[in-house]
Amino acid sequence: MANTTFDRLILLEPDKHEKKMTRDITLCGSFAEASHFIAAMLYPRRINVFVEGAEESSSAAHVSGGDVRICQPKARGGHMVVYSGRAETTERLAQAMISSLHTPLLNSTLYTMEPCAPAILPLVSQLFGRTLGASVNYRSLPAEELFHVFQLPREKSRDLFVGGSVEPSMQAVMLTRGDLSGLVVPFSFFRPSGTGVTPDFTSFKVTDYGQTVQLGSYEAAADAILYELDPKYRQRLKKKQSKADRSFGACLRRLRLQRGISRDDFRPTTEKTIARLERGEFEPSRATLKTITNRLGVTVDEILSY
């Protein structure tokens, strides 16, 4: 979990389904004070905390089952996400705040699956650096897909969308990426397709594990949105593409063309096999590799340098 999207994920009152969905998170580390703080605040008289994979020496290792599930990696500190699957849980958290002194957890996000009462919002906003999902307009990925995205490496999750809302007054869709950063997409991005389908901004949701934004019967690819609106995404793609060009197939093609050798000149390896190798459709066998290196008079390492 060292390289996952968040440093710590806390589930408030998870049901069986939510526990099951997070069972694969690999956890270790000691009990973090911030996590304990939330549990203590929410359950002032009955602290019953379950820390997944806590070390024996942890202060919470002896507690099992309970109202709060804490999934924490090795690192202390960092970004913490508190997940609340139900509006009542979020409201109880807010009520607990009223009666207890607290220190705001600035480097944290409260992610709620159900909107909470408008009166509650300012309260939870005081405790958490950021609150997502609390407004009635917000639409999140289904919980199962959401946890899946949360468990991906940050490099992958940031290119997926976990939720968002449509803001007609701003003529924009506010999307939340898998690393919980935001992206504003103007309505004008969603151009009608050639078949005449137009987006319906009153019917918004995110599907395909964050790879598709759905507006009624209209669908937009997440990578299309990122490609057009995020320069850093484009830079990453360019880097990746140049790396891909250094694949064995691409190098072989460059070297072959430079030497003026046709694909047919690698007998007994067929022309078709060379073409497929160059397209990266499969890895060469040892025998094929030997044929190629013998014909070109170079080593594999030398091929890869082209």
Binding site: K156, G210, T212
Partner: peptide
């Protein structure tokens, strides 16, 4: 598994997208 052409794709060569979970 899904194979899709969505209404708004990247403006690159024509393509289809194979989707499986968070992978494509």
């Amino acid at each position: 598994w899904k194979v899709k052409i969505r209404d708004r794709e990247r403006l690159e060569p024509p393509h289809i997208t194979v989707i499986f979970g968070p992978h494509s």
